[in-house]
């Protein structure tokens, strides 16, 4: 690494992160297509690309790109057009700080955990902007639900992450994963559960998809979107799953910890990310959607107390040891 000039290293890392950002969400999306289909006794896409529909998302992308870019007359055009980018780009930014293995990371920051949480929280802003700018009452209602959901679930998410940061004594993601030990699986289990639930809720995925509840709000904030801009929102959702799974892997599953970690550590990280993504998909398939009041009650009456209790437990153990 010492022979590589700085500018080249920056470019290479940026390109690698971009490649991961373009490939991993598609893999997760394809996995969702197939896993969800088979969980529901279907087959999912079978024709695109020839072998079990592997190219379905490529075909979808081509279709979305061909469509007309329409903005409603009542829409706030500038905000309306900007919203999909605001939804998508923060996840790209967040992905740069998630390490695959020691040194294999877009940007190794001292406050990496804070950076990822802050960046991915911006992503929800895109949904808010879309809801506000669409000039559609369903979009607006969906946007407001998004805002309420963001406010409620950001707190347990951050508290659960704080617990891990306290346990590791650092905010650096590589440091957290290095400090991880197998007994954390039991010790940090409540925090892990809270983090996963709150993370799925942040992504507005079922069973927390109240903002886009199609039976009530058509498609929520995305109602007026079509073509490539709608595809960007979809891509943002899957990128969000990747970021959530990556963060969960690093915080609670030890990242690259596993047999032969010094050789294939990055592979362990990827496998864990994929497993967590499948769990997120599995939750979506198996569980019904929460009502808006249930959604809020779950955040404030269950997740926040559990996260606070975990924080106390972590504090006691860290001080005692």
């Amino acid at each position: 690494m010492t022979t590589v000039p700085d500018w080249l290293e920056v470019v290479l890392r940026a390109v690698a992160v971009l490649a991961a950002f373009l490939v991993l969400p598609l893999l997760v999306g394809q996995a969702e297509h197939k896993v969800m289909a088979h969980m529901q006794g279907r087959m999912g896409p079978m024709y695109a690309g020839g072998f079990h529909g592997w190219a379905q998302l490529v075909a979808d992308g081509v279709k979305f790109a061909q469509k007309e870019d329409v903005a409603p007359r009542a829409a706030d055009r500038a905000v309306f057009r900007l919203a999909p980018a605001v939804a998508l780009v923060p996840y790209l930014v967040a992905l740069t700080a998630i390490p695959l293995a020691p040194g294999v990371v877009g940007a190794d920051m001292d406050a990496g955990l804070l950076f990822v949480l802050a960046a991915s929280a911006v992503g929800v802003l895109g949904t808010l902007m879309a809801g506000w700018a669409s000039g559609n009452k369903y979009s607006l209602l969906g946007g407001l639900r998004t805002a309420a959901q963001l406010l409620s679930y950001e707190l347990p998410l951050v508290l659960a992450a704080t617990s891990v940061a306290m346990a590791a004594g650092t905010l650096n993601l590589t440091g957290i994963a290095d400090a991880w030990g197998p007994w954390w699986l039991a010790w940090q289990l409540p925090a892990a559960a809270v983090f996963l639930v709150a993370g799925v809720a942040e992504l507005q995925r079922p069973p927390f998809d109240m903002p886009i509840a199609d039976a009530e709000l058509v498609m929520g904030p995305y109602t007026e979107y079509g073509g490539l801009r709608f595809a960007l929102f979809l891509l943002a959702e899957y990128a969000g799953i990747v970021v959530l799974a990556g963060l969960f892997t690093v915080l609670f599953l030890g990242g690259w910890a596993g047999p032969f970690a010094h050789v294939v550590g990055w592979l362990w990280t990827l496998v864990k990310v994929f497993v967590v993504s499948v769990v997120v998909i599995w939750i979506r398939v198996a569980w019904p959607r929460l009502r808006e009041d249930q959604l809020q009650a779950l955040a404030w009456k269950v997740l926040v107390p559990v996260a606070l209790g975990q924080l106390v437990l972590t504090g006691v153990v860290v001080v005692a040891s």
Partner: peptide
């Protein structure tokens, strides 16, 4: 139970 049912269905061949 919801998780168990979906997982069991995942393991079976679909009748499609």
């Amino acid at each position: 139970r919801g998780l168990a049912v979906t997982l069991a269905t995942l393991g079976r061949r679909s009748h499609t």
